[in-house]
Simulated assay, not measured.
Amino acid sequence: MINALSGFLLLAVIVLIGWALRRWAALPDNAEAVLGRLAYTALAPCLLFTGTLGADLRLLVSGPLLVSTLAAVACFTIFALIFLRRDRRTRVLGALAGGYTNANYIGIPVATYVLGDASLVVPIVFLQLLIITPLALTLLESTTASLLKPARNPLVVAVALGAFLNILGVRVPAALLDPILTVGNAAVPVVLIAFGMSLSGRRVLAPGPDRLPTVVAVTLKLLVMPAVAFLLAVALGLSRDAAYTVTILATLPTAQNVYLYAQRSGGDLVLIRDAIFLSTVGCLPVMLSITGIFSWTR
Rank of each mutant, 00 (worst) to 15 (best):
I2P: 06
G7F: 12
G7E: 10
A12G: 02
I17K: 02
A20K: 12
A33D: 11
V34A: 13
L48R: 04
L53I: 14
A55I: 09
D56K: 15
L57Q: 15
L60S: 09
G63E: 10
L65A: 08
V67K: 03
A74N: 12
C75Y: 01
F76Q: 03
T77V: 08
L84Q: 06
R86F: 04
L93N: 12
Y100I: 02
I106E: 06
G116L: 04
S119P: 11
L120E: 03
V122D: 09
I124G: 13
L127E: 12
I132C: 12
P134T: 10
L135R: 12
L135Q: 09
L140E: 14
E141A: 07
S142T: 15
L147R: 08
K149R: 15
N153D: 12
P154V: 00
G162H: 09
A163N: 01
L165N: 15
V170Q: 11
D178W: 02
V183Q: 05
A194P: 10
G196R: 05
S200L: 01
R203K: 05
K221M: 14
A229M: 03
L231E: 07
V234M: 04
S239F: 09
R240N: 03
A242K: 10
L260H: 11
D268K: 01
V281R: 11
L288H: 14
